[in-house]
Simulated scan of single mutants.
Amino acid sequence: MVEAARRLCDTAALAEGGDGVRFTVELRGREISAFVVRFDGAAHGYLNQCAHVPMELDWQEGRFFESSGLYLMCATHGAIYAPDTGLCVGGPCRGAALVKLRIEERDGGVYWLPEFPYAAPALAAGS
Rank of each mutant, 00 (worst) to 15 (best):
G91T: 14
E104F: 09
E104G: 02
G29H: 04
F39N: 13
T85H: 00
E66C: 12
L8K: 07
L14G: 13
E104N: 05
E115P: 05
G29D: 03
C93Y: 12
S33L: 11
V2E: 07
G109V: 01
G41M: 05
A51Q: 13
Y71Q: 11
G86A: 05
A4W: 00
R7T: 11
G41P: 14
A119W: 13
G86H: 02
A122Y: 08
D19W: 11
V25N: 01
L47N: 01
F116P: 08
H44Q: 02
A12M: 11
S68F: 05
G126L: 14
L123I: 10
G20V: 09
Y118P: 02
A13S: 15
L98W: 10
T11W: 00
G86L: 01
G90A: 15
F116K: 11
R63P: 09
H44M: 11
R106T: 02
A125P: 12
A82Q: 07
Y81R: 01
Q49F: 06
E66W: 02
D10C: 06
A120W: 11
S68H: 14
G18W: 00
D40H: 14
N48D: 07
V110I: 07
H44D: 07
G18D: 07
F65H: 02
S127P: 14
C93G: 01
R30S: 03
V36G: 15
D107T: 03
A119L: 10
R106K: 06
L113V: 11
A96Q: 12
Q60L: 10
R28D: 14
G20P: 14
G20L: 08
Y81D: 02
D19I: 12
P114D: 13
A12S: 13
Q49N: 05
C50W: 13
L98P: 13
R102Y: 00
A4D: 04
H44I: 06
A12P: 00
G18S: 12
L70Q: 14
H44C: 09
G109H: 11
A75K: 14
E66N: 08
N48A: 04
L113R: 12
I80Q: 12
L123Q: 10
G17P: 11
S33W: 07
L72R: 03
E61T: 03
G109K: 13
R94N: 00
A125F: 13
D10Q: 15
C74R: 09
